[in-house]
Write a protein that binds this DNA or RNA. Sequence first.
DNA 1: AAGTTTGCTGCGGGAACCCGCAACAGGTCT
DNA 2: AGACCTGTTGCGGGTTCCCGCAGCAAACTT
Lengths: 236, 236
Amino acid sequence: MKVLLVEDDQFHASWMEEMLADALPEVSEIFHAQNGAEAEREARLLSIQAVVMDLRMATRNGIEAARTLWQERPETRILFWSNYADEAYLRGITAIVPEDSAYGYVLKTAPRDRLKLALRAVLIEGQIMVDREIHRLQRRQATPWATLDDSEFAVLLDLAIGLQDKRIAERRGMSLRTVQNRLLALYDKLGVDAEETEPLNKRVRALNRALVTRILNIEALEAAQRDFDQWSATRR
Amino acid sequence: MKVLLVEDDQFHASWMEEMLADALPEVSEIFHAQNGAEAEREARLLSIQAVVMDLRMATRNGIEAARTLWQERPETRILFWSNYADEAYLRGITAIVPEDSAYGYVLKTAPRDRLKLALRAVLIEGQIMVDREIHRLQRRQATPWATLDDSEFAVLLDLAIGLQDKRIAERRGMSLRTVQNRLLALYDKLGVDAEETEPLNKRVRALNRALVTRILNIEALEAAQRDFDQWSATRR
DNA sequence: AAGTTTGCTGCGGGAACCCGCAACAGGTCT
DNA sequence: AGACCTGTTGCGGGTTCCCGCAGCAAACTT
C-alpha cells in the first residue's frame, strides 16, 4: 500500500515516517509532500488512497487539500494530524468529508500508541476516529454544553468577516430579525456579557470569544472570506 | 556557559540541542524546560543568563515567561525561536525588553547558518537580531508602509477585547472623539472598506484584518484580556 | 510675526445594532 | 382537540457607532 505524508515540518515528517514503518507493515511506499498543493498533485499522479495530512501549512492548508482529494477520489482515507485542538478544524473537516469516507483526527501530542491505533483504524480499516481531547479541551469558559448548531455557526462566520445583519440575512435567506435572534443565541452561548461588569461591543466580543475558545481560528476566517468572495461573485 | 532551552516540542528541542552543541562550543550545560512556568523556575534556580525560548507553548507562553525572567534579571539574553512571523509577537517582545538587553527573534524555518549566527550574536555577543522575514511577510494586503504607532496599537487591543469607545477613552485617558479618530486611522491602515463593494461592520472587520495580516494573533487577544482585567481590578 | 500643519476636542445626525414584545406557524404531548 | 413548545418574523425605541464639520492649541515653516 502506498501512503502520502503531507507535512511541512521536517522533524515531524521523519518521526511520522518512522511511525508508519513501525505500525503498518503493509505499507510499501511512503511519498512525501510539503504542502497542500503538492499533495493534490502527487495524490492525483500516484493514485494515492491513504494520506496522513498536517493541517497548518504555509501555502495551502490541509483542509483545502483534502477537499480537492475527496472531490477527485471520495474513497481516499485521510488521517489529519495537527498540533491544535481547534474546533474550527473539526468543523471544517466534517463539512467536506464525503458520505462513508474514512478519516481521523489525532493530535501531535498524542502518545505513540494512540497514534499507531489511529493509523491502523483509519488507513487500514477505513474507520472514523477522532481524538477525544479535541472535545474535552473546548468549553472552558463558554457556557458549557452549549454547542453551536450549523445555522448559528454559519452566522458566526458571517459575523466574523464583518457582514452586517442585513447582508447576513440576504446571504442565508433569513429575515433580519431571525439573524438577530441567531446572534442573541451566539452571544449567549459564547458567554458574551456573562459576568462582565461593563457593557461591551457584542459583535467584537463574540468574535473574540470564538477565537479564544478555539471555536474559530484565523484559518477559518480566511476560509470564510474566500467562501464569501466566491458566493458574492456568482451573485451579480 | 549555561543555556536554558524552553521548548515543548521534543523534536524541535533535540534539534536545537544539537545545534547549540555544534554552534557554541562555549556552552557547558544545556537545561531544558517544557513550558513558561518551568522556565521561570529553572532560570531562577540556576541563575541562567542565556535562554532559547519557544513562543507558543501550552501553559504559559514565551512572552510571559520572558517578562518574568527580565524582571528578575534584566541582563538575561533571550533568543526567541518561533514558527510564526506574527507581528503581534514582535510587538509583545519589544514591549517588555529592558534597556540594553540582548534578544533575538528567529523563525524555525530559518536555514541552519542563520540560526547559528543568531545563537552566537545574541547569546555570546549580546547583540540584538531580528529575522527580516518577519517584516517582509507582513503587509500583504494592508495598505503598505502603514505601520501602527503605539497609541493606535493600544486602541486596537482595546477594540479587540470588545471595549466600547467610551471605555477605551477612560482607560487610555483620551477624549471620546480622539478615540474615534484613532479608530478611523486604524480602519484606514488595516484596509477596512478598501475596495469593498458592500458596507461592513468596521469594528469586526478591523479585528478580522488585524488577525489575517498577523498584526494580532489569538495569544495577543488573551494577553490583552489579562492586562485589561488587571487594570480594571486596580481601578476600583 | 504671520501662516501652515498636526493633533485633540465637541457637536450633531444618520445608520446600524441590541432586544423586548407580540403575533403566527408547525410540531409534540396529554 | 386543546395545550404547549419552538422557531420565525414585524415593530418600535433606546443605545452605540461612524464620521463630517469646525474650533482650538502647539509645533513647525517661511
